[in-house]
């Protein structure tokens, strides 16, 4: 049996995905937020404000920013889920909570994209 199916065998269930997504979005934020700030800083330094604003109109920049907003939303809602899990009474609807967290995060990301375009 392949290593992948062996690794997935005991982990393929919603609570584990939720953990994984939360961990990966956290790592993604840690990597890309500094990069995002760096690029912003450089762009503002080099160009006039008008030039900078037209730069943020580029599709690629918009896409990257949307990605960052999605990461942020995913990580935030994932964190709220963990707080709910640990501080509210246990509910057997943990899967529903996971789904709500993902849904809200996705909606926030799409809304941003909509407003940005």
């Amino acid at each position: 049996m392949s290593t992948l199916s062996r690794v997935a065998a005991s982990r393929n269930h919603p609570a584990y995905w939720a953990f994984l997504v939360h961990r990966l979005s956290g790592l993604g934020l840690a990597l890309f937020l500094p990069l995002h700030l760096l690029v912003l800083g450089l762009a503002v330094e080099r160009a006039s404000l008008d030039g900078f604003l037209s730069w943020t109109d580029r599709p690629l920049v918009k896409l990257a920013e949307t990605g960052l907003v999605v990461l942020l939303a995913v990580h935030l809602t994932g964190g709220l889920r963990v707080l709910a899990l640990e501080f509210l009474p246990w509910s057997d609807a943990q899967k529903t909570r996971i789904a709500i967290a993902f849904g809200v995060a996705l909606a926030v990301g799409l809304l941003f994209l909509l407003l940005a375009v």
Binding site: S10, R11, H13, P14, A15, Y16, F19, V82, L85, E86, F87, W90, Q94
Partner: peptide
Amino acid sequence: CHSQGSCTKHCPNGLNPSMAITGLKK
């Protein structure tokens, strides 16, 4: 515990250690 829930998913007797651990945390 990171509340991954693999314990609860696999416990053959249907116990929920994941829930017990959140109880301990509280």
